[in-house]
Every structure is written in structure tokens, then in C-alpha cells.
Simulated assay, not measured.
Amino acid sequence: MAAMEAFCRDVLGARIIYADEDFAAIELLGSVFMLHADHSYLDNPMTGVTSGAETRGAGIELRLYGADPDRIEKKAAALGHIVLAGSIDKPHGLRECYIVGPDGYVFVPSARI
């Protein structure tokens, strides 16, 4: 949980509302997200979906519209995170990059060109 909390704060620029070893609430781009540690899912219906998964977050993109991809790319690289694809203008009218965060989740900050 601490790694994801630090990533959200230090790379994405999220505001940490509350955090402990089990749970965090963060505010990012006007939305509030709640993050839960794995052990909080012991009796959760999602346990059956995630059990046996070799890589957490495989195939998941968390798209963050309105986030500055250039700024986030620089922060991620400076803190040693994987920049899967650097910031680039895309034909669909967005500038975006791909950053691998803790546990394999891919964050795609994007802004209108």
C-alpha cells in the first residue's frame, strides 16, 4: 500500500486524504479513489477473480484525463518508475504517455492537445 500511495502522491500529484497499511483515500483530478490492500479482500467476492493471478494489474490501464503527461512522465522517470511510452500527441486529439506504477498497473495521463 505504501508504494502505491507514494506513486499516487509523488508521481501523479494526488492529495492523500487518509492512508494506513490497509486502506488509502486519495483525491486526483477532482475524483476521490479508495485503494485497499490485498489482505482486505479475504472475504470479498473479488477473491475468486484475483486468486492465482501471476501479475497484478496485467492489462489494466487507468486513464487520467486532464493530467499533464509531460510532467508525470518526468516525475515517474526521476523516481525510477517504468515509462512504457513517452509523451506524444496522438491522432485522437490527446497528448498522453504510459507509466507502469506499483503492482503492474499502467497509468495513462492525458491532456487535450
Rank of each mutant, 00 (worst) to 15 (best):
R9H: 02
D10L: 01
V11R: 03
L12W: 05
G13T: 03
G13N: 00
A14W: 02
R15L: 05
R15P: 03
I16Q: 06
I16P: 14
I16A: 08
I16C: 07
I16N: 08
Y18T: 00
Y18Q: 06
A19H: 11
A19W: 02
F23M: 08
F23I: 09
A24L: 03
A24M: 03
A24W: 06
I26W: 00
I26M: 01
E27I: 05
L28H: 01
L29I: 09
G30Q: 01
G30A: 08
S31M: 09
S31A: 12
F33H: 08
F33C: 06
F33N: 00
M34T: 08
M34D: 05
L35V: 14
A37K: 13
D38W: 11
H39T: 14
S40C: 11
S40P: 01
Y41D: 11
Y41C: 10
L42W: 10
N44E: 12
N44S: 14
P45W: 08
P45F: 11
M46Q: 09
M46T: 13
M46D: 07
T47G: 13
T47A: 15
T47F: 12
G48N: 10
V49D: 06
V49F: 11
V49G: 05
T50F: 15
T50H: 12
S51C: 09
S51G: 07
S51R: 14
G52V: 07
G52Y: 04
A53H: 09
A53N: 09
E54Q: 09
T55R: 13
T55D: 12
R56G: 10
R56H: 07
R56K: 12
R56S: 12
G59A: 02
E61Q: 10
L62Y: 00
L64Q: 01
L64S: 02
L64T: 03
Y65K: 09
G66K: 05
A67G: 02
D68P: 02
P69W: 04
D70L: 07
R71G: 01
I72S: 04
I72K: 06
I72Q: 14
I72W: 11
I72A: 07
E73P: 03
K74S: 15
K75W: 06
K75S: 12
A76N: 02
A77V: 10
A78W: 03
A78S: 15
A78T: 07
L79A: 11
G80M: 04
H81A: 00
I82N: 15
I82R: 15
V83Q: 04
V83W: 14
V83A: 12
V83P: 03
L84S: 06
L84T: 12
L84F: 05
A85Q: 13
A85D: 13
A85G: 03
G86Q: 05
G86W: 12
S87W: 06
I88W: 12
D89L: 02
D89P: 06
D89Q: 14
H92T: 02
G93Y: 03
L94M: 15
L94P: 04
L94H: 09
R95N: 10
E96P: 04
